[in-house]
Structure formats: C-alpha cells, structure tokens
Nucleic acid binder design. Structure first.
Lengths: 359, 359
DNA sequence: CTGAAAGCGCTAACAC
DNA sequence: GTGTTAGCGCTTTCAG
C-alpha cells in the first residue's frame, strides 16, 4: 500500500527555503514582488518537496472554492447522462470542480439537506440537473431565500423568478407531429412518457395541440402512457392498437419505447412506415440502426449542460460584483432527424408478415 | 436573483446565543457535556439564523473531507456511466461526497495535474475509473509513491502492487464463445472493440483461446476490429463476410455493434440465428428488443462501482489506523444472458430475404 | 522586496 | 458545564 505520508505545507517549504511563508505564498501566486533568486530558490524547494498548496485553505480564506455543486437524478437515463457530460466538459474548461450529488429517487420531499450539504462545502453555485417529476419541485414554493449562491435549474417547467434552462420539449413534440402530418398521416397516435414527468406532458401537449390546429380531433383513446422503458412500449403499443385501430402513425415519446413498438409492429405484421409511420424522441446512437431506421427528435443535452455551466458561472461572477442577474429562462430547441421509419414508400420497409404467411 | 447574503458563522451563533463558540461547536457535534437548556437555546439560534457549519473548515482541521475523488472518462459510454452510477449510490450510503473529474480524452500523458487537483482539495481517496486505453496507464510505471491517500483503479489490467477492480472480460469472452460452440457453431468470427482498449483485447483473447481449446484453428481473417460504435459494426461485418464467408456465428464485442450487424444481416438476407448466430456484450436495456433479441454478456458495472467505493473507503479507514491494506485485485465475473439471436431454430428468426424475393 | 501579525471557520486541549 | 487558547494551511493587511 501507499504510505500515508505527512502533508507538505507552506511552512515546510518556507523553513526549508529559509524564507517566510508569505514569500512562498507570493511565489505560488505568481506575485511580481519577489526577487528572481528568491523565487527560483522557493520553486526549487517546492519541486523537491512535492508541495501542493491546499485549495481547501484557500477556499476558506477567499470564500470561493471554484467548485459547483451538481444535483442529478436518473443518471442511468440517456438524457441526464448526456447533460452531465456537457456539465463536466464546460466546468473543466472554466476551471471549476464538480461536487456531484446523485439523488436515488426523483421524489424530493426536502431539498434542504442536499443544499446544505453542498453549501457546507462552499460551492460557488448549484446546478439542479434532475428532471421535474411528480411534485419534486414543490419545495421551490418556499422560495430560495436563504441560498447564498446562484442556483440554476435544468429540465423543468419555467417558473417566474427562478432561472431555468431546458430543452424545448414542446417544440420537439410539434416538430414530430407536424412531420407526420406532412407525410400525409391521418391518424396519429401518441405513446407518451410517464405523465408525472414534465417533459412527457410537454411532448403530449404538443402532439395534441398540433393535431387540433390541423383540424384533427383528439380523443382519449388516441394516446397511452409508457414509462420510458423499452419494455413498457410493448404493452402500450397493444393498447393503442386496440383503442385506435385506424391509426397510421405514432409519435413515441422516446426512442427506447419506439424500439419496442418497432419490434412488435414487425412481429405482428405491420409495415413500418407504410402502414404505420413512427417518430421517436432522443436520437439515441442506436436509433439510426433500428429496423427501419428511426426518425426522431434530437435534443442536444450536451449543449444544455455546457450552457448551464456557462450561465451559472456568469451568475457567480456577477454576484461577486454585487450585480443582479435577470432571471431569464432559456429553452433550447431540438431538431428533427428524418429517417426511414416515417417516410412512406421508403426502402427496407417490408414487414415480416409475408414471410410467415409464405412459410 | 437571490441576494448574496453574508455567511452565518459559528461566531454569529455564539454571540446571538450569548455563549462561546466552543459551546456551539459542542452542540453541533452532539457532545454530551452541554447543559440541556444551553443546548436548546443554541439549537434555537442555529435554526433562526439558518446556520450550517462549514465542512470546509472542518476538513481543514481534521485533515479529512469525507470526499472521494473520482476520475472518469468516456461517460457517454454505457459502461463508465453505469459504474459512476454505482459509485454515487454507494458513496451516498457511506456518507462520502464525490468530486468528479471527467477526462476529455482517454490519453493521459501526465496524471499528476489531475491527482494534484484532487489532493489539493483534500480528497480522502481516489477512484480512477476510466478504462485502460492505449498507454494511458504508463504513468503508473513511475509508481504512486507520493500519493498520500488510497487510490483504486477500475477497469484495467491488474498490475502488481496496484489495487485494481474490474469486470472479468476474459471470463465474459469465454462464456460467449463457449455458448456459441455449444450451439453447434463451427465457424465463429469475432468483431472486436478497438484493440488499444484492454477490455477489447481481453474479450478477443478469450474468443481465441476458447476456440483453440475446442480444437478450432484461428486465423487472422476470422476477426476484425470495430470502434464500439454502432456505425463501425457496419463496415466490420462486411469485412468479416468477405474474409470469412463460411462463418456461422459472430461474437461481437459490444451490443451497439451487434445491433448494426443484426441490421445489416437482416437487410442482406442472413437468417439470424439459423445462418448466423450472434452474441453481444454489455446487455443494454434495448438488447432484449433487438430483432431478434440479442444474446449477450451482462456485466454488472453498477456493482463494480459500489464495490469500488466500499473497498476504497475500507482502505481509507485502515490507513487512518496506520494499517496496511494488501493489494488484492478483484475481478467481477459477468453473466451470460441467452436470447434468440444465438439459439438455432428459435422463433422470430426469419430473414427479410424471402420478402424481397417474393415482392 | 520581505516579514510579522491577524484571521478565514472551526475544533482539540486545556483551564476554570 | 463552559470559556480560553492555540492552530489546521493559507492569505491579507501593514510594517520595515
């Protein structure tokens, strides 16, 4: 095992170099007012002793840690994972460390212990990056009054006086639905995510509004609810078939569920897209290789993470100058990626039914 | 914006309560030697002022931060992502915070800045959780001599005197290959991951060894190299077909590439598994819904992360007691998940060829 | 240019 | 039971 050696402090360096700790401090902070030889000597000693200044002590003095607290949930889902990726990338660039806190459940009855945990470690700002699920934002009603650092929320319903950064799920839903309408689909169903998720509600509402705007009536039976998981798509698809037999397209709220719809459609003899056009949401790396390749909505969550850090750091710095940041909510618009699953008459759209009949 | 209020310190509380800071300290540390009324009073003031003790100051004194530094890379890949998940879960349980550092590239010419960064923030231990790629472990040759805290490596080739925790990729490869042999496959090809990854080499070696042990000779043309990505599977599969036309099975080094093999096989008229049996590696959530459902090797990376934290914290505590931990390397054995893609004569294994011919 | 003193927020070790 | 003193590792005055 590695020996548990004593930490080398500024005192050791000072003593060894025969100078005061201040002089060492000046050297490591690259102050100009140190004699070249002294500097050289000190640097030499630092190197020899393998001294590293304690950021902890520095943070204590400066009341600034160059650390941001990131609260996340559902890291196993593609979205939060990609967002975290963006966060780490940008934080690295800006020289900030990340103190990560993953919630085991989406439900947050009391956020205070978490905020307390982060604040006790002197984070300069907080990124609340988990999705809005159920009433896990209710605690916001009490206000953020006593939080002494900037805080930014991701992936949740914009609220007045609270800075929020999100993908525009509604816009994505419109994109998907309108695309299917443009393909000539007359009976567009929706397989939603769990409706206690804000994102799922947004996508569903977009679907409904877009259809109604196009003059289609929307009934209860035209949509059903999944739970994001691939397996849940299975049941949901069967429900839709029963409830809405005339459907000729489905806007599925994520690619994972779309995959199982694709599979089940294939097994039960639907031609995709000719008999059933499909659009997903997320643009997984795999979606282009589904059979047929899946048309989907690409949301740039990496960018979301990056921008969130940029925005937060901006606020941190403004706060230091006693400036007031305006609470501008930001929505990032997703993009429609057109592939075979929604283009009628495209190649590679044969169903398996004939095979079964013929064999 | 949230006002940038002054931090409430132990002094404020002491003054407000009319006691010394020491007494406040005793209260927040739940020491027994405080008069009940004093305690009550102090707690009241703490509550009223919204005081939170600074973990930073505490860490400084105790030289212990209850924080572990996690160095990760390739978080966009399923494996590292799942591992991080396990790490956060277990760290949370054990009361440790996580300081996250994501490397933008796998290549690490110099690990010292990273270690320095973490150590400067007083982490109690370090988890090096990125995969071994290329020569990104060469820096270990210099030894870990001057690292004053326990450090544990994940997902890399075991080395003497360095604690390593890993999935047993070799065992997984044996499982996959043996399974295909058991199915009666005679010509088992391998689509490997990028061979500068240790994991990819392990899986490939297992394939080769298992075949040779079974009396099959292994030629160069029987395997080809992908880059883990779905798209790379495409090219690789075509290469295998040309180089090894008699192949009747492929052990694909991850599920993503297996998906594109599945797709391309389907498009070009191979019956999977009857003409071509397939086994993947990873067990993505989607793999059960591929067409046909993919037989694969499930590696429990979540557990890997959990155990890593447990192990590290154990070492941290031992080090505090000046105990020496033995450098025991740990390998976690993965599991074979059998689905349709490898079971000859299973249902839903029709190819698309007949459809094309018949229409 | 360099050093001495004070203090960031907290706690250990003593007093009383 | 409670307060005082000293100090974690560093930086900021302010002298010289």
């Amino acid at each position: 095992m590695i020996p548990h050696s004593e930490r080398v402090t500024i005192k050791h360096v000072a003593k060894e170099a025969g100078v005061s700790t201040q002089t060492v401090s000046r050297v490591i902070n690259e102050r100009p007012d140190v004699a070249p030889e002294t500097r050289k000597l000190v640097l030499e000693v630092i190197e020899r002793l393998g001294y590293h200044p304690s950021e902890l002590a520095r943070s204590l003095i400066h009341r600034r840690s160059f650390t941001i607290g990131v609260v996340t949930a559902g890291l196993k889902y593609t979205g939060p994972n990609r967002t975290l990726n963006g966060i780490t990338t940008r934080a690295e660039e800006l020289g900030y460390a990340i103190l990560l806190k993953e919630l085991s459940h989406f439900s947050v009855e009391d956020a205070r212990p978490i905020l307390k945990f982060l604040l006790a470690r002197q984070v300069d700002g907080i990124l609340w990056a988990g999705p809005e699920v159920g009433n896990n934002r209710d605690w916001l009603a009490n206000g953020l009054g006593d939080i002494p650092v900037p805080i930014l929320f991701l992936t949740m319903e914009p609220r007045p006086d609270i800075p929020v950064l999100s993908i525009d799920n509604y816009a994505g839903g419109v994109l998907a639905t309108q695309h299917l309408l443009d393909q000539g689909c007359k009976h567009i169903a929706h397989l939603s995510g769990p409706l206690d998720w804000w994102e799922a509600r947004q996508r569903k509402k977009a679907w409904q509004d877009t259809l109604e705007k196009a003059g289609c009536k929307v009934e209860e039976r035209f949509s059903t609810e999944g739970n994001w998981s691939t397996s849940s798509g299975h049941v949901a698809f069967q429900q839709l078939r029963r409830g809405y037999p005339e459907m000729d397209a489905i806007f599925v709220a994520n690619d994972q569920m779309a995959l199982s719809v694709l599979r089940l459609a294939c097994e039960t003899g639907f031609r995709v897209p000719d008999e059933l056009a499909l659009v997903g949401f997320d643009d997984l790396a795999e979606s282009a290789y589904f059979w047929p390749a899946l048309t989907t909505i690409r949301q740039n969550q990496h960018e979301l993470g990056c921008r969130a850090v940029g925005e937060l750091v901006g606020r941190i710095e403004q706060a230091l100058n006693a400036q007031i940041s305006d609470t501008q909510n930001i929505l990032i618009v997703p993009e429609l990626i057109i592939r075979q699953s929604s283009i009628k008459g495209s190649t590679a759209v044969q169903s398996i039914r004939e095979v079964n009949n013929g064999s």
